[in-house]
Nucleic acid binder design. Structure first.
Lengths: 201, 201
DNA sequence: GCACCAAACGGACCACGGTCCGCTCTCCCC
DNA sequence: GGGGAGAGCGGACCGTGGTCCGTTTGGTGC
């Protein structure tokens, strides 16, 4: 027998987090941020973060899953800000400018972010076997793919998006800038010229 | 008092490896190759490799330094063959063809190699924080940089070489091919078009 | 052969990321 | 405010990569 059932308006809503859980999440994020800054990301163990947060190690992993996700979560505010700029910000980063200009601006923004948080971003993509499946990366890929498709409807936007994102990975930038000493200005210029070649105005 | 000293002709020569060490290196490589093939790279621990080789774990690490280097060493024969083709092989992979054609051929060769050994290459660049500092990668970068410089003396060959190598990383290809299901043909075509855009004939 | 020594060996040991499970505490409903 | 359910907690536990150091062994000079 079919019955009318009271359906929640948006069943996708999370079942609401308990107050202590929320508090702990924040304490863990604060502790991680502090320790990352103090003694460096790679010298900060998960145990140390748990201890600093005054919380059991299990709680850290329950909240964040693994080390890479925690690193990503620490940068969440910065990521949200970037995405906001992409969607609703001023041109050329936001809508309104031609795709090539927006892409160059995206590269600039990414390099700025990378310079500021290189070690944390490195950690985020190092530990996980699949940093490329993370939500932020997915958003970046969508964005770039969208710009490419508008500028060159003929091209393979999926592949080109990957090409345009690959040099912006923390690993590549770390090697270029830290290991081999290439300047950020050189990287920015290089990216702009790359975009100019790939997305003709 | 200054004395005439008998100088070795080439002090850079390694001081000759002991016979048992050489034998053990080979047994370890064989064991690793076998186990990687049998149960998969990610399911094979270093202890298991040591046991299979009939050797202490310390010996494995003494010979190969770390897991990533061992993975790389397993593929050494394949890498040597590739490098041989680049330096002395037939065109278009080897010398003689125009730079753009050689670069496309390089991409083809790399994709073939990636398809064949994806999991091992993934392991090699996953574990080490600095897979980009490995000897093979250095050679690849030199090669690509050299081709770029010949085709476009005006451009930033260093940056472009990185751009052209980044999409050929095991991590990117794994995500494209395994996770997202892009075909190898699509990747090859994409790379060829990328080269065409970046290195005008 | 022999004796010597550096190179090599091996497995106990360590630190770390991640899991598990029995106990606790919050929240909701009455 | 009392009680029941289940999310949340914490820290003991596990497997793994990597190190250390006392012991063994292969090469070499006599």
């Amino acid at each position: 027998m079919i019955q009318a059932v009271e359906l929640p308006v948006l069943p996708t809503t999370q079942p609401k987090e308990r107050a202590d859980a929320t508090a702990n999440r924040q304490r863990i994020l604060d502790a991680a941020t502090r320790l990352f800054a103090d003694r460096g990301v790679s010298c900060t163990s998960m145990d140390a973060i748990a201890a600093e947060a005054g919380v059991g190690k299990g709680t850290v992993f329950r909240r964040f899953g693994d080390r890479a996700s925690l690193a990503l979560a620490v940068l969440d505010a910065s990521e949200v800000e970037l995405q906001e700029s992409l969607i609703r910000g001023e041109p050329p980063l936001g809508p309104g400018a031609p795709p090539a200009a927006r892409l160059v601006a995206f590269g600039e923004a990414m390099y700025t972010r990378l310079a500021e948080h290189l070690d944390i971003l490195l950690e985020a993509e190092l530990s996980g076997a699949d940093a490329l499946r993370s939500a932020p990366h997915g958003v970046h890929r969508m964005h770039v793919r969208h710009l490419v498709q508008h500028a060159r409807p003929d091209a393979d936007a999926d592949y080109l998006a990957d090409v345009l994102l690959a040099p912006l990975s923390a690993r590549v930038v770390h090697d270029q800038h830290v290991v081999r000493g290439m300047s950020l200005a050189q990287l920015r210029t290089g990216y702009a010229e790359l975009v100019a070649r790939l997305l003709p105005a």
